[in-house]
Design a protein around this nucleic acid. Structure first.
Length: 924
RNA sequence: GCGGCAUUGGCGGAAUUGGUAGACGCGCCAGACUUAGGAUCUGGUUCCUCACGGAGUGAAAGUUCGAGUCUUUUAUGCCGCACCA
């Protein structure tokens, strides 16, 4: 009987759905396990074969865990707020909800065809009011909380108010507005004037992780710096906990390292420098500036100070003579976009006219302003040590400032010496110390003398949480006397209003276009929340998706606790995975969730790139623009550098051979195309007939994209080969975590395997399995179990193939063997596994079966033991295959004399041997 | 610049605890069957050599009875961060 995959797959998908075999209950005696995929943004292009890679891997793991007796939560949903749908809406006037829902429908139909074991009853969509109610709810909690630095935990802000009422007499004298303003400095969700990444093209601000090299990640539009009043989340308060929490997570080192980098902890010291200006005489603290440094030991080499242009110190220290020059410089900095600043790293700066006093040497040091110092990090002011910092060095060279070497033997005539090693010189009481010790000594010195204090700085900034966009969660916030207040929780969800026009007008965000956007007559917030708002707690919602009383009930949360296995791309390392951890820790502090970290184990699947094909158009002398050269010839002198590669649809290329007729029909400009074939003959001369000559295309690995004509749609693969073949082949491509190009060419091999496997399930017999058959099966059980537990899915497919080959060679059609084979296949290829299980005479679903146990006893090969004489005495025993002749063993020992000597001197229990070689030594 | 990961046939990649390097698949070669097909099956396929034999996991050194695997140095590629003081 033929392997009719489309019939099998359709039948079983319908049966699973009808019987609800993948519906998950929160009440179960079984141990729980939560497997989650990062939910997708439903883009208009639909899924390509790269998307399901991680989904297949997590599905295999889920199905395996189920067979192992776990109650497995494995849901899917959609991150459905976002810029592309809104950009499309602005262009076409279509409501983003309409296009979003259409895209979701398409995604669901594509996903269903691949046979995932999702519990679709638990699907969530971030743009669904029932869902974003809880996004808004979380925001209100953040607004009403502050971060207590003593306990390192979020607390209700009422506690802070009570404390002030009791201990701070000034509090009661403040007006309501003043009180609100003071509280705003503590709230975890707060409104502040901050320097933001403003993207004029998108008409919105962006978070740091949404900007790369001065361009927006979405769209690639220029981004400029601007000060705006924005909602922010006090993520930086959690910097230390986010850093320390990493140690307890089962994530890859590279991902942890990326997060550590992003959090950017650095230990150093803050130091106070008094400032001498035209107005002050330095006696008082009145004019001083605080700087942050990790190299307090280099203070004897400070030859100038530098302020960031935006530093609050600037206006205090600038002298009248320098004012004009300084203002000109500040203006120039302000007008530079982030991108220009990054692109142009020439040294610029201006002298303020004032001097700082070195607290150790009492020397006067000039204060400069330069944009190489960042306002957002440390205190926005630095002490410059040109001898030992390359940036200070460049500045000193440009402005001809002195450079004092502080480390013995350091040559600073050409460049700075940045390394933290060597003996200190020119450094007063630090002279002779190693750098490491000097840093420590200096820290103690400044603490004791009160010049400064030890300080830990983090690079992680607060997240800017406002977006001047339409397609996002509205803030549950209204304004009274210009101060924000949150809506009562029972008013949630605050529904996204309808608007006529999706683009903002008159500098107002799009919600400004909504009619009657007020609460009790007070204006509501016009901004919406960013994309990461909805994706920061969605994994909690899956635990209890229909609850309208809470984000997640206590019982549901305490049953599932946290995501046991999370799969997704590494591109979310500094965005989603930081925000989610922050969000979760916040909810944990307030007692809404029972785990401090959301994702226990995390795996990044690699990206699947496209494999583009090219034809080469002849553009040399006498070119008609109509002649194409086979790839194998383009390096020939007559064509070299005279051809132009043109992307060609991979649908008309098979194994790098172009389908000539399909190419001519593909686009009008290729209608009269002529070719020089692989053998050097030309189509004009020979008169082309299909199949007679080969035209070879070039190829390249690129992003999968419509513009490269290299997109492969999983639907097409499913139709041609079936979902099981797709699943197996995606895993077979290579290690899960590695990036790799998609190449449909190899898929036949996997498909052939399924067809051959299918043949084993004819004429099933109820005979007792032989030893060889049992060995094949148990080898397979051992291998597949190990593979799944170690996420080494790619190596399972060869194991299945080998087992299939062995069983075919043994002509094995025995029920006892084939039943278990079906169960082993179930995680990888669930449809054919169900059918195989069924053909063995079972009526149950394979998903309800038990994972087979490996019996090691079946794996032992027949061996025999030889005592080996060495130096005349019996020294050890060699165990080798039964038919190995004794002379062979003796010859072997002599041939491996060094090894034998070593063995004789050690307590060796067993040696496994194959002809000619000792291969495995078991120590006693 | 800092950090992480990788490098094995024509190609994707195996080698799980240091123990037969190249599993399995693609491609290619030969053969069988055949209604000539992009079907199926069988055998071969790391390189050099007619062969015997030798070499071999980016390069160099080291540890070990034994190294693709461990250590050091180095080269190349990919990814992340980056005037972060």
């Amino acid at each position: 009987m033929e392997y009719n995959f489309s019939d099998i797959e359709k039948r079983w998908q319908e049966a699973w759905e009808k019987e609800g075999v993948y519906t998950v209950s929160n009440e179960s005696d079984k141990p729980h396990f939560y497997v989650l995929d990062m939910f997708p943004y439903p883009s208009g292009a639909g899924l390509h074969v790269g998307h399901p890679l991680g989904y297949i891997a997590s599905d295999i793991y889920s199905r395996y865990k189920r067979l192992k007796g776990f109650n497995v939560l494995h849901p899917m949903g959609f991150d459905s707020y976002g810029l592309p749908a809104e950009q499309y809406a602005i262009q076409t006037g279509q409501h983003p909800e309409k296009t979003t829902f259409e895209n979701i429908d398409r995604y669901i139909s594509q996903l269903r065809k691949i046979g995932f074991c999702y519990d679709w009853n638990r699907e969530v969509r971030t743009c669904d009011p029932k869902f974003y109610k809880w996004t808004q709810w979380a925001f209100i909690q953040m607004f009403n909380s502050y971060f207590d630095p003593k306990t390192q935990k979020a607390q209700p802000i009422s506690k802070l108010i009570a404390e002030w009422e009791a201990n701070d007499p000034k509090w009661a004298t403040l007006s309501e507005r003043e009180q609100q303003e003071r509280l705003m400095n503590y709230r975890i969700a707060y409104l502040a004037d901050t320097k933001v990444n403003w993207c004029p093209e998108l008409g919105t601000v962006l978070a740091n992780d949404e900007v790369s090299e001065g361009l927006s990640v979405r769209g690639g539009f220029p981004v400029e710096q601007r000060v705006m009043r924005q909602w922010c989340l006090r993520v930086s308060a959690y910097a230390n906990r986010l850093l320390e929490g990493l140690d307890r997570l089962d994530w890859t080192d590279s991902l942890k390292e990326t997060q550590r980098n992003w959090i950017g902890r650095s230990e150093g010291a803050e130091m106070k420098f008094l400032v001498k200006t035209q107005k002050s005489k330095v006696e008082s603290d009145e004019l001083s500036m605080t700087i942050f440094t990790t190299r307090a030991d280099t203070i004897y080499g400070v030859t100038f100070m530098v302020l960031a242009p935006e530093s609050e110190y600037v206006q205090k220290v600038v002298t009248d003579e320098q004012r004009e020059e300084v203002e000109a410089y500040l203006k120039r900095c302000k007008n530079r976009t982030e991108r220009e600043r990054i692109a142009d790293r020439r040294v610029t700066g201006v002298f303020t006219g004032s001097y700082a006093i070195n607290p150790l040497t009492q020397g006067e040091i000039p204060i400069y302003i330069s944009d190489y110092v960042l306002a957002g990090y440390g205190t926005g002011a630095i002490m410059a040590v040109p001898a030992h910092d390359s940036r200070d060095y460049a500045f000193a060279r440009h402005f001809n400032l002195p450079i004092i070497p502080l480390i013995e033997g350091a040559d600073v005539s050409e460049e700075s010496f940045d390394a933290k090693e060597g003996k200190m010189i020119n450094s007063g009481f630090l002279n002779g110390m190693e750098v490491k010790d000097a840093i420590q000594a200096m820290k103690e010195y400044i603490t004791n003398t009160g010049i400064g204090r030890v300080k830990v700085n983090y690079r992680l900034r607060d997240a800017i949480f406002s977006r001047q966009r339409y397609w996002g969660e509205p803030f549950p916030v209204y304004y009274k006397d210009g101060m924000p207040y949150t809506l009562p929780e029972e008013e949630l969800p605050l529904l996204l209003p309808e608007v006529e026009e999706f683009k903002g007008v008159n500098g107002q965000p799009p919600l400004g276009n909504a009619k009657d956007w007020t609460y009790n007559g007070y204006p509501l917030e016009l901004c919406t929340m960013p994309g990461f708002a909805g994706s920061s707690a969605y994994y909690l919602r899956y635990m209890d998706p229909h609850n309208d009383q809470a984000l997640v009930s206590k019982q549901a949360n305490e049953y599932w606790r946290q995501v046991d296995l999370y799969l997704g791309g590494s591109e979310h390392a500094t965005g989603h995975l930081i925000y989610s951890r922050f969000w979760n820790k916040f909810l944990y502090d307030l007692g809404y969730v029972c785990e401090d970290e959301p994702f226990r184990k995390l795996i990044n699947q690699g990206m699947i790139q496209g494999r583009s094909s090219f034809v080469y158009r002849y553009v040399g002398e006498g070119a008609t623009g109509n002649l194409y050269i086979s790839y194998n010839l383009i390096e020939n002198p007559e064509y070299k550098d005279k051809v132009q590669p043109i992307h060609v649809s991979i649908n008309i290329v098979n194994n790098d051979v172009l389908d000539i007729n399909a190419f001519r029909a593909w686009m009008p400009q290729f209608k009269n195309a002529e070719f020089v074939f692989a053998d050097g003959t030309s189509s004009e001369l020979t008169g082309y007939t299909a199949g007679a000559k080969q035209f070879i295309c070039g190829c390249a690995v690129e992003k999968m994209s419509k513009t490269f004509f290299n997109v492969v749609n999983p639907d097409d693969i499913v139709e041609q080969f079936g979902a099981d073949t797709l699943r197996l082949y995606e895993m077979f491509l290579g290690p899960l975590e590695m990036s790799k190009p998609w190449d449909t060419n190899g898929i036949d091999g996997v498909h052939r395997f399924l067809k051959r496997l299918w043949n084993l399930y004819e004429n099933i017999e109820d005979l007792e399995p032989t030893k060889d058959e049992l060995r094949s099966l148990h080898k397979l059980i051992k291998k597949i179990t190990w593979d799944i537990e170690n996420f080494s899915f790619n190596t399972s497919i060869p194991a299945f193939m080998i087992a299939q080959n062995e069983l075919t060679a043994l002509k094995c059609h025995k029920r006892a063997i084939l039943e278990q084979f079906a169960v082993l296949m179930a995680p990888y290829a669930p449809h054919i596994a169900e059918e195989m299980w069924h053909r063995c005479g079972n009526t149950s679903f394979v998903v309800n079966e038990e994972w087979p146990e490996c019996n090691e006893a079946y794996l032992v090969e027949d061996t025999q033991k030889y005592p080996v004489q060495f130096n005349g005495k019996v020294r050890f025993t060699i165990e080798c295959p039964k038919d190995t002749p004794k002379e062979e063993v003796e010859k072997l020992v002599l041939a491996n004399e060094d090894t034998a000597k070593y063995l004789a001197g050690n307590a060796v229990k067993k040696i496994i041997v194959v002809p000619g070689r000792i291969v495995n030594i078991v120590m006693g």
